[in-house]
Amino acid sequence: MKSPYNDTVMDHFMNPRNMGDLEDANAVAEVGNPACGDMMRLMLKINDDGVIEDIKFKTFGCAAAIASSSMTSEIIKGKTIEEAIQVGNNDIVSALGGVPEVKVHCSIMAEEALEDALKDYYTKTGKNLDDLNAMIHKYKGDRPEHH
């Protein structure tokens, strides 16, 4: 019987990429809470061209939650807002080479954190939030809130 987590998940769990705090972040989100068993803080620095220039995260959670956060940060770093929005939890799970069925919800937390951080960016910079919501709707349609 294999370990519940593959080598990629274990690598991201043990050596999380982009972990830490981002002093000059202009987009911040915190989703989940310890009572739910997982919590993620995502910090982005988005430049004037709408490119995610830098990214840091911190995650309280199981190995799958930490690995999903790390993989998400790696995937969206350097992407534009519109490109980043297209990254869904399926992409995160497949980039990780799969996670146990019961752990798929951990990857949704990372996707939610990204959307919330982008909303924070739009609010802080005075951009029209409807544009962002329309973009989210365009790529992802309506979906229920996780938490």
Partner: peptide, 30 residues
């Protein structure tokens, strides 16, 4: 979180048990 502690102990070569929800039933489908 309990499961991440358990995993790190396992990585370092210690078999321990966790009362964590996340470690409760890793083979479950839901």
């Amino acid at each position: 979180e309990g499961e991440s502690l358990l995993m790190w102990y396992a990585v370092k070569g210690f078999a321990v048990a966790s009362g964590s929800a996340c470690a409760s039933n890793i083979l479950a489908e839901d």
